[in-house]
């Protein structure tokens, strides 16, 4: 079967749903961060695939640039997110997302 845009998009959708499920249900904050990375990856796949199939002229690599910015943001997010997790762990000795509820009204 010839691989086309749809294949990449379906893969992206599946990965996104898996990541979303993990991000919604994980108790460990680091687990949630991992699942968010999966979601970002899924989005990146879609962006790069669009860039190849919908704007196939290789000079116009807007999608690649976009995906690069996503990677930049993901790196920043991972750094800050883990710093927050480690700070919380120091203060509360837990990484369980459900116990971090001091903002609860």
């Amino acid at each position: 079967m010839e691989v086309e845009l749809t294949h990449y998009l379906v893969l992206s959708g599946i990965l996104f749903a898996i990541g979303l499920f993990g991000a919604l249900t994980k108790q460990n904050v680091i687990g949630i961060l991992m699942c968010i990375e999966i979601m970002l990856n899924a989005a990146n796949i879609a962006v790069v695939a669009f860039s190849r199939y919908l704007v196939p002229d290789t000079v116009l690599l807007t999608g690649h640039g976009f995906a690069l910015f996503v990677i930049v943001v993901a790196a920043a997010e991972a750094a800050v997110g883990l710093a927050i997790v480690i700070t919380l762990y120091r203060n509360r000795a837990t990484v369980d997302a459900e116990e971090m509820d001091s903002m609860k009204g």
Partner: peptide, 29 residues
Amino acid sequence: VYMGAISVLIIFGVMLTKDVQRGNSFNRA
């Protein structure tokens, strides 16, 4: 970026928070 940097960050996070063995279960929802 992902394999060289972010995964290393995440593994560092895993190591520094010692809930490695049990702590990745699902919540009630």
